[in-house]
């Protein structure tokens, strides 16, 4: 089983690497879905089946579909891919890469020193999560719902056809 986890981890990292290097948005999105599915597998293996299911449904499903819709609406075509290739010169990767390497080194140093014993987590099913969610965390649920409402209103407001605003812009 452990091998499965490491395999999923490897797939997730590899797919994410491909996401960030693609020039074509749709390709990147598809790789991101792969990465998210791998992460979902890791969730499942870590004893969080409910989180895994949500990862597949909400992340890989709903959110990515939203991205796909937007990319389709923008109808970018091949010239944008060419522009993207131009932006992605190797030199552009050096700085962020170095920065990320430094951070990774630091994190490895910190987490490596954290030699927690290997545990065998018991699976925590939807029942426990649901009880906790609507028990002690009910306020967090309310907050999340308000936030989603705000997102909804904000998205509606931004996407509204603005005739009068054209002149100002």
């Amino acid at each position: 089983m452990n091998t499965l986890f490491y395999l999923a981890a490897a797939v997730a990292i590899l797919a994410t690497l491909l996401v960030i290097t693609r020039a074509h948005a749709v390709h990147a999105l598809l790789y991101l879905i792969v990465s998210l599915l791998a992460a979902a597998l890791a969730f499942f293996l870590l004893g969080a089946p409910f989180a895994a299911a949500l990862e597949v449904i909400v992340y890989a499903g709903a959110i990515m579909v939203l991205f796909v819709f937007v990319v389709m609406m923008l109808n970018l075509g091949t010239h944008s891919v060419r522009g993207e290739r131009q932006w992605l010169r190797p030199a552009a990767w050096v700085g962020p890469g170095l920065l990320a390497a430094v951070l990774l080194a630091e994190l490895v140093y910190v987490l490596g020193g954290w030699s927690a014993p290997a545990t065998t987590p018991a699976a925590i099913g939807p029942r426990e999560v649901g009880l906790a969610l609507f028990g002690p965390y009910v306020l967090a649920v309310e907050l999340a719902s308000v936030m989603l409402l705000a997102g909804l209103v904000g998205a509606y407001h931004l996407a509204r056809p603005q005739k009068e605003a054209e002149g100002e812009a």
Partner: peptide, 19 residues
């Protein structure tokens, strides 16, 4: 279930985050 060190899971999260 898996029996991996705690730090390995966190390292996976860190790697994805940095990507």
């Amino acid at each position: 279930m898996v029996t991996i060190p705690f730090s390995h899971g966190l390292l996976l999260a860190a790697a994805l985050f940095l990507l």
